[in-house]
Amino acid sequence: MSLNPLNYGKTCTVPPVPGEAALEIEHVTFRYPGAPEPALEDVTLRIAPGERVALVGPNGAGKSTLIKLVAALEKPASGSIRIYGNPVGSCHHRVALVPQRSEVDWRFPVTVRDVVMMGRYVHLGWLKRPRREDHEAVERAMEMMQISDLAGRQVGELSGGQQQRVMLARTLAHDADLLLLDEPLNHVDVPTQELIFHVLEKLAAQGRAVIVSTHDLGILPIHFSRAIFLDRHVVADGPVGEVLTAETLARAYGVHLCTERVEAINGRVAG
């Protein structure tokens, strides 16, 4: 992947286009080099500012791939991705990513404060040291995620839930308008899960768009109003109750669930 080294830390010159979607994906197809089948095929979707959307689907459905395309970690073979009306990569400030746990080297000797500060790098760039406002943003983010007391600890010593709080704190420090969270709920304790959703709700209320990929379908009806079911292409997109049908669930789990189970999950929407 070639990146223009001058883009790193450059101030954002392209303002969000008024009235445009936070994320607009049109006919995107992507294939990993050497793979016989495309990971994503003709994906089209639109997410408005302030929306909280769950990205669901079976393993290998392309959820992570889609997130990587939006975060500019991969380039689509065809189709277009626009973020607040501008092409991907035109403003790194606007998009923040919480990667899957396995993509991060947790053993590397960095402290919690170091990691949260990484959210400020996009505002700093080459050779600039964090300023007072950056330190303040980091402290605020750690406070919000209730990890201020862990600031000096090495991230590898923390529990899975604490580590995920650190990653979300980094995203808060980044101050992005489009948040991408790839499986943030794996190995996370219940209080952390509640905190994550509380913070995401707050961010969405500020008009930011949030996309969360997850295979924990049970939490969908409680925390999301909209779900997108992905299986190389968009199978279903809409209110959680409509997306989670017996057919999509069977597809996600590879088994046929009895209708009562489906109703039990959907029941939480009404409840």
């Binding site: 080294p5 883009n7 790193y8 450059k10 970690l73 790194h92 990513l97 790098y121």
Partner: peptide
């Protein structure tokens, strides 16, 4: 880049 190369790319750093 040592801790989280994905984040590095996402912020425009190679």
């Amino acid at each position: 880049t040592s801790f989280d190369p994905g984040h590095a790319v996402a912020i425009g750093l190679s």
